[in-house]
Structures are given as structure tokens and as C-alpha cells.
Design a binder for these strands. Sequence first.
DNA 1: ATTTAATGAGTCAATTTGACTCAAAAATAG
DNA 2: CTATTTTTGAGTCAAATTGACTCATTAAAT
Lengths: 264, 264
Amino acid sequence: MASDGNQEIWKDIRKYVHVLEENAISQLSINCVILGFDDRNLQVAVNRVQIGTHPMLLLPGGYVGQRENVSDAVRRIVRECTGMEDIPLRQFDVFGSASRSFFQDLAGEVELSTGAAKSIMDWLTRRFISLCYLALVDFREIALHPTEFYDDARWIGLDEAGCLALDHPDMVRSAREYLRKEMPHAPIASRLLPDTFTLPDLQALVEAILDRRVDRPNFRRKILGTGLLRKVGQDRSGIGRPADLYSFVHGRHTALVEDFRFGF
Amino acid sequence: MASDGNQEIWKDIRKYVHVLEENAISQLSINCVILGFDDRNLQVAVNRVQIGTHPMLLLPGGYVGQRENVSDAVRRIVRECTGMEDIPLRQFDVFGSASRSFFQDLAGEVELSTGAAKSIMDWLTRRFISLCYLALVDFREIALHPTEFYDDARWIGLDEAGCLALDHPDMVRSAREYLRKEMPHAPIASRLLPDTFTLPDLQALVEAILDRRVDRPNFRRKILGTGLLRKVGQDRSGIGRPADLYSFVHGRHTALVEDFRFGF
DNA sequence: ATTTAATGAGTCAATTTGACTCAAAAATAG
DNA sequence: CTATTTTTGAGTCAAATTGACTCATTAAAT
């Protein structure tokens, strides 16, 4: 793809790299694990990019402007990908191996002769340290946008994240671990679920995060016992007995956090 | 202090900055919250440095070499300060405000005329992003070493960390929060306590981390019920009835992690 | 009408928790 | 030496929580 004449693309990339050289903090990148919950499975937002002959799947990412707060940079990156403002973000890891670079894993893919100027190669071969952030979004409210130079943006199942390029599968693993640890301390489910949801939905989410099955009657008793949920209707869409619809009672998170159990 | 002729110091600093310019990743720094436990209180290791007229207390920190893994850089920094190898480290936060620089909080302290060359001012005024790491050490095994250009290295109580310079008090706060959340998931007490310790010691540590009191008989029952501790003697040093000495039974951490309670 | 899938509700013994009291061991004061 | 104080180990008991269940209800499919 890149080998035959999309000079235009390389020209754009060169310009983009030039802007980055001028305005961005060198050797520092951001990557975001944007999680959603659909079809009772955790999903992660990825970008498809074709730099060599094979397409690659990558986590959304970007760079930090010299006059930009890191947190604002992350917000900007998430906004570009999801269109959403004000999504809570958590930094959960740093990837800083000395050998980390785009080119390390691209060797053989990029053909220098076609249009990759020196400035681009400099950028691609440079050692980068990546700050990893986690964002939880309501799947149904998000329409993923491909950002500049990405062919495509899509959701993939969290279990399929092993197919990502570079060390991004490790980032997803780390994010998953972080999410599990964060469960008792922060509102998580309320960010991943739509405004109204069924208890089986909530249970499936908790099971996905904990990566183990939970007894249904006991889960119901425990969750309803917290007083975090308010019944708001019925869901008559599925097969079988209709499930009750619930909403989170706003502002009761903090109390639960102290109780050292699920945090929603 | 800095105003009158310690040209030597400034010369050393200039050389140091030059080396950093050549070898270190630009605009990226490391800070370490090194925690110990003594006198039944959490302590944090700090460096005293005098750049202007007033002395400042700072968390141990440093920079990342171009060919150095970030994790190795942190290990190096902790080693320089504590003399200990192989201390487990956890990255827990990133401080990345666009206005972060040494000079921001030094304004008025540094007198340019005396010896602070342009290269040094460039370094001091540069916007830095800091990666924060947490290290837990056995207080009794550590003798703090002042690193290059630091007058002094010492322990201060965790509650006194508000007196640190720059945004380092915020780093300590964040570290404390991280520690609390990490309790159920990682061996913490076994890293902070000496090889043998009493149950009241362990309880005081847990209370310091949780920042609340715990019922003594119930704490004993719960901890001993886990089978994590092995009685190894008696402590006859204090007043009152002698306390039994315990050691952690090695290799039983992982099981406890699943039980979602204290992790030692 | 019957079966099946999916969900809400309830039971009950075992375990854990929270709030206690009591006993033991050593330093200290009289 | 004896009594008191301090500190720690051990035990009690009711209440709450948990884990493993069964049963009942509702709606779609046959």
C-alpha cells in the first residue's frame, strides 16, 4: 500500500511530524485504553493504521504539547477518538523500556525509498516513553472517529486485544488488572453502563471485570442491599422473563467506597 | 548561601546539567516516595537541597538516560539514596501540568548573576513531566545517603510531608492514597516491617495505612486466622506484657490476594 | 397447552464480623 | 514485697454476611 505512490500521505505525515517536532514534548507519548461494555463483554477502542504492507491495530494515542497539561492532552486524544468531553481518565501505567520505538516493530514494513523522509525516520526510530490512561465510556453513546492518519477506528473484544501491535497488548493487560483493583474504590459500572440497565447486565459486567463467575441470587441480594440502585422500569426486549431496569442512585458512591466493596 | 562565591558548586552543577543535556531524556523526571515504618509511624525519605536562600526538602529524584529503561532509572535513583538493590517499585502517578518547572517555585531564590549560567537556567525553567514511583523499605536496614548536590538525606513523618517544596506534598498524598488502595492486592506490610515484628506493630502499620483505628482482638483473630504469620519468639523490650514475635510465612501472599483482604 | 429460557425471590447453615470482657505478664510505685 | 499500671493474649456472643441452594414468575418458542 505504502510502497506505491501515495506521496500525498507521506507528505501529510512529514508535515505532521514537523509540527510535532516543533510543538510536542520529545520522546513522550500517550496511549489510551478506552473501554466500553456491549453484548455483555468489555470492548476496547482501537485504531487501524497501515504504515507498511500489513495493517496494524493500535491503541489511540498522541503527544503532549509544550504548553499543554498532560491531562488535557489525554482529554484531547480521547475526544478526537470518541467525540466525548469530560470523560474521567486515570493514568495506570508507564511503558518505558529503552528499546521502545515504532520502528522496532516496523522493521521491514516501512520502505524508506518511497517517501519516508529523514525527519519521519527520525521520529519512527526514536525511543519513546508512553503514559497509559484508562477511560470508561458508555458504549451506546460513542461513535468512534478515526483520527488523522488512521484508516479506521473500531471496537474489539478485550480478549482479542492480543492482536494489537507493538506492546499495546501489554497495555491492555495492565489496564485490565488496574480496573480489577480499582473496583472497590471508584465508580466503574456507572461509567460503563447506560443510564438504565438490568441486574443481569450489571452482573455480567462485574464478572467481566473480575474474570470469574458470580452466584446470581447472592449478587442480587448484595447489590440491592447497598441501596445504590433504583428500579425504574422493565426491559421487555429479551427472551424469557423480563428483567427489571435499574438506575444508579447518584451521589452514594463515596459511602460505598468506605465499605470496601464494589464501587459504582 | 548561593549568592556569595561558591563558584565551585555552580561549576559542578553546570557540568552535571551538561551531562544531563547530553544523556538524559529531556523534560522527563522521576520522583520516588520511599516509605519506611518506624516508631509506629510511616516515614518518607527526603533530600535537603539549598539552591536559593532557603533550604528546600524534596523527594529523591532524577532523570532517565537515553539508553536506560525507566524502571532501571528508578532503581538507580533508589539505590543512590538507600543503598539497597532490588527494591520493588510501583509507578503510581504522573505530574504533568504545563507550568511545572523547578524555577516556577524558585523565583526570587536563584540569583542569576552569581554563577548560574544560561544552560542551568534553561534546565531550571524547563517544563518537566514527572513520573512518580513508590518504594517500601525496611526502615532499620536503610541508611539514607545524600545524592549529588543534596546537602542531606533524612526521614520525615508522613504527616509532615506538607512542608516539602514544589508539588511534592501532592505526590506524597497521592502515594498514600495509592498505598491504601493497594493494600488488599499486594504484599505491603512484609516490605515495611523487619523480619520479625509484634502484632501490635503490624496493627499500628495497618492503622497508619488505613488512617483509622482497628479493634485489637478482632485484628488479632483475623490476621492469625489467615495463617500468614508464624510465631518466632518473644519481644521483651517494652513495658507491659511481652508481645509475641512473628514472621511472615513466605509464599502465601497470592492466596490472600484472592480473598480480597489485607495483602502482606 | 406445554416446554424452555431467563429472571425475581426465599431458605438455611456456616462463616465472619463487631463489640465486648477477662486473663496474663512485666515494669513501676509505695 | 505488694499493689498498681501498662500492655498484650485469649475468649464470648449476638448480629450480620456469605455461600450454596431451591422455588416461583414471566414471556417467548414449540
